[in-house]
Design a binder for these strands. Structure first.
Length: 516
RNA sequence: CGGGGAGUGGCGCAGCCAGGUAGCGCACCUGUUUUGGGUACAGGGGGUCGGAGGUUCGAAUCCUCUCUCCCCGACCA
């Protein structure tokens, strides 16, 4: 299919070593780097710019749902976690704790925490904010008129993970956490689903990453939640990535924090709460969904620069004219909107060889690269390179299209919309081809993962949704094959067969996959 | 935390086993060359070898401790 003389921008190909390729893209695209602090990364401008775009688009959706932002403390009193037993069980093993508030010299040129300055009560660096936001909600909710109470926070959180991976699992990460309190279970569930749907829309429409929304089985629930829902994306190696979660917390957190209200009859009632979050992990998902052997491909909606204009400067007198021509091209785009927003154009005047700059933008994944040389100027044209269709398969060279300059401005919006749509379609097609349905024997599932090639994808099976010891046994069975349950797809067909694990009548269909 | 691997100029690596103050490719700087485009040649700048301690006349090379990263496992919204 692919001509062999293509000289790709990366040294590692996806099919040769996916993990190494992932690292290389993050490097080559200038997204982030190691910080020297265990499990923590430095997010570089291009990576952070993408995050800011994601943040903006998600925040718009949250605000459109009528949920305002607020900010709560980074430090949470230890005692807060002791109130909800399941919650503390879930997070105890991975909490960073502040125990002192002062340093003193150790006498050997170093510094140590001052034993005299030990905190009465240790403070936990938030791994999530249910407990501290719950405190506030308890104060803020008195009457049924105060409900629903809906809040969102953009923040950093810390979870002391054993093994970290850039963007996918870092000790500190950036995220958004929504927290709501409602009068009834029905309203809280409705909010849980509204948040889930908001995530699905944002990730599919903005990040161009196809996901499957559904409910997590009991063993995968958020600590303390009654129901956990997720959106699951398939990476190019067939593994699953949880890209967002939404939880119905029942009344357990309300009970722990005392979030209650007086209803119209004057009776005290516990609130039903929800929480939901998405994080910088989504950036890792974008890399593993849209990246290729030449680096990253950023979907136009989340690209900090959608079009990069590259003047072919050669330290010659005509450089000035080329630059002026590029300025004109940029100006011609200034009134143009694409995908509902003013188009974002960068004229890259930084010194350096034009060819090297071109490849750096290819690796970063700018959706459209426009090259302009003296000859283009002479012909009133621009050379357009689509990052999502980089190569001319006939000659193995970059697929440049020479477009009349006045035509380019009028077609740019459509071009970006096409790229956004094509990236999504490509990812969706790849994913759908890798989901297997209809298996009724467990050993067939095992074989499909063992022998189904390098990247076997997912399998959807029917099961009887057991709990307790029976569920544990099933989870162990999965574990033995390095498999996990992902979710029960929201819109899957009803079950009509038997449980693949027990042979009992099945009650639903559930996705099984290897996961990040 | 268990097993394995690795940390040498910006990036990728060699040197280490048989210790004598560092080398290659890319990138970078200067000049020339080339000019529908990841050109070529010549010259040049930059590192004290993750960190600390030890052995030694002398350590990137040997020993001890420690930090960090990668892979597998365990663990994990």
């Amino acid at each position: 299919m692919e001509v062999s003389n293509i000289r790709h921008a990366l040294n590692v190909k996806r099919e040769d070593d996916f993990a190494k390729w992932y690292q290389e893209v993050i490097n080559a695209a200038d997204l982030a780097e190691e910080s020297g602090v265990r499990g923590c990364m430095v997010i570089k401008p291009w990576g952070y710019g993408i995050w800011e775009r994601v943040q903006r688009l998600m925040d718009d959706r949250i605000k459109a749902a009528g949920i305002p932002n607020a900010y709560f403390p980074l430090f949470i009193p230890l005692a807060n976690f002791e109130r909800e037993a399941d919650h503390v069980d879930g997070f105890a093993k991975e909490m960073a704790v502040v125990t002192h508030h002062r340093l003193i010299a150790d006498g050997e040129g170093g510094l140590i925490p001052d034993p005299e300055a030990k905190l009465e009560e240790p403070l936990v660096v938030r791994p999530t904010s249910e407990t501290i936001i719950g405190d506030a909600m308890a104060r803020w909710v008195q009457s049924w008129r105060d409900l629903p109470l809906m809040l969102n926070q953009w923040a950093n959180v810390v979870r002391w993970e054993m093994r970290t991976r850039m963007f996918l699992r870092t000790s500190e990460f950036l995220w958004q956490e929504g927290h709501t309190a409602h009068a009834t279970r029905e309203e809280a569930l409705e909010e849980t689903h509204r948040a889930l749907e908001m995530y699905r829309a944002c990730v599919e429409e903005d990040l161009a990453m196809p996901v499957i929304a559904g409910e997590k089985p009991e063993n995968e629930r958020f600590p303390g939640a009654d129901e956990t829902w997720s959106i699951e994306a398939m990476m190019q190696d067939g593994k699953a990535l949880q890209a967002g979660t939404s939880h119905y917390l029942g009344t357990s957190f309300a009970s722990a924090a005392g979030i209650q209200y007086q209803d119209k009859d004057g009776e005290h009632q516990l609130c039903h709460t929800t929480s939901w979050g998405t994080s910088t992990r989504m950036i890792g998902g974008v890399v593993m969904t849209h990246g290729d052997d030449d680096g990253l491909r950023v979907p136009p909606r989340i690209a900090p620069h959608q079009i990069v204009i590259l003047p072919m400067l050669r330290d010659k007198p005509e450089d000035e004219a080329v630059l002026a021509y590029c300025e004109d091209v940029r100006k011609s785009l200034s009134g143009v909107s694409a995908l509902g927003e003013p188009i974002r154009v960068l004229l890259d005047k930084t010194p350096g060889k034009a060819a090297a700059k071109r490849w750096s933008w290819v690796k970063k994944g700018a959706p459209v690269i426009v090259e302009v040389g003296p000859r283009d100027m002479e012909n009133s044209k621009v050379a357009v390179l689509r990052r999502d269709a980089l190569w001319n398969m006939d000659n193995g060279k970059p697929a440049m299209t020479f477009t009349p300059r006045n035509e380019f401005a009028s077609t740019a919006a459509q071009l970006l919309e096409d790229i956004q749509a094509d990236l999504f379609a490509e990812a969706k097609e790849r994913r759908d081809a890798k989901i297997t349905r209809g298996m009724t024997e467990w050993h067939d599932v095992v074989n499909s993962f063992r022998k189904g090639g390098k990247y076997p994808g997912w399998v959807e099976v029917e099961w009887s949704k057991p709990n307790g010891a029976e569920l544990e046994a099933v989870v162990e069975k999965l574990k033995a094959e390095k498999l996990t349950f992902r979710n029960v797809p929201r819109d899957s067909e009803p079950a009509d067969g038997i449980c693949i694990f027990s042979g009992k009548p099945a009650v639903e269909r559930i996705l099984v996959a290897r996961a990040y």
